[in-house]
């Protein structure tokens, strides 16, 4: 029987030395969903994404599209259809915007040129600012533009599941809104998204479901549409989020 979830973790845990920073985590992401993972600094959100992307050793089961990816190297995940927009964007600063986008398509075979071109056009349509800056050195872009480039570069992988780590970090409110607006559009077009975010209102405004993390474990799965649970979250875990 085909696995209903695109991504599923069962008892996924990770340690740095003897310190268990990720206690056994069970999450699932169904195709087409927008999932938010919330929590304060140090909750283990980034570690969870790194464990999913096989960037750090972990224990437990991890399935992507019904297939175990526990022993899959990071570089092979792009080929399967999963990629990450890392924290602080991590664009290739000395390279041009165009080169960054071209590298997003590295894992796709040369025969797929028409599909790559179509994705390139779709990225420029989603982020028109990038189309005016294709020859510009990526490191000279503003923070918001760099985040657009990081998302655009990940879209060039042609993922089925897009993971994002704190996409609003260090961005002006307007730039954050633009990025999340684009993520909403992508999700409406059918892209499955898992976003780690501290700014809960932004993420919850788009999320179908949410997980709240604290000290390396999932402590709640609030309904994003439930205002009462949002207020409780704000009060308990996220500080001043308004």
């Amino acid at each position: 029987m085909r696995e209903a979830a695109l991504l599923r973790s069962q008892g996924l845990s990770a340690s740095y030395g003897h310190v268990e920073v990720l206690k056994p985590i069970d999450i699932h992401v169904a195709p087409g969903e927008f999932i938010a993972i919330l929590g304060p600094n140090g909750a283990g959100k980034t570690t969870l994404l790194k464990a999913i992307m096989r960037l750090i050793p972990s224990q437990g089961e991890l399935m992507f599209d019904g297939q175990s990816i526990v022993n899959t190297p990071t570089w092979a995940l792009a080929d399967l259809g999963m990629t990450l927009v890392p924290e602080s964007r991590m664009i290739f600063g000395p390279m041009t915007v165009l080169e960054n986008l071209q590298l997003g398509a590295y894992s796709r075979p040369g025969a797929d040129r028409a599909a790559v071109n179509a994705d390139f056009e779709a990225v420029l349509k989603l982020f028109p600012k990038l189309s005016q800056r294709l020859d510009q050195i990526a490191g000279s872009l503003s923070g918001g533009e760099q985040q657009m480039l990081a998302v655009g570069r990940a879209l060039m992988v042609h993922p089925r599941l897009l993971l994002l780590d704190e996409p609003s970090l260090g961005l002006a409110p307007r730039a954050s809104s633009e990025v999340f607006q684009a993520l909403g559009q992508l999700n409406q077009q059918g892209l499955t998204i898992l976003v780690v975010e501290q700014k809960a209102p932004l993420a919850l405004s788009l999320a179908h479901r949410a997980y709240v993390m604290h000290t390396g474990q999932i402590i709640a799965t609030p309904d994003p549409k439930d205002i009462a649970s949002r207020d409780a979250l704000a009060h308990l875990y996220l500080g001043d989020i308004q």
């Binding site: 960037l55 990071t74 570089w75 092979a76 792009a78 991590m90 590295y106």
Partner: peptide, 23 residues
């Protein structure tokens, strides 16, 4: 693309591998 990927791996090997490059 291979030459660009070699540069990308030196700039940030972790991100390069996320994008499918074998560092």
């Amino acid at each position: 693309q291979f030459g660009r990927a070699m540069r990308a791996c030196a700039i940030n090997p972790e991100v390069a591998s996320i994008l499918g490059m074998r560092v």
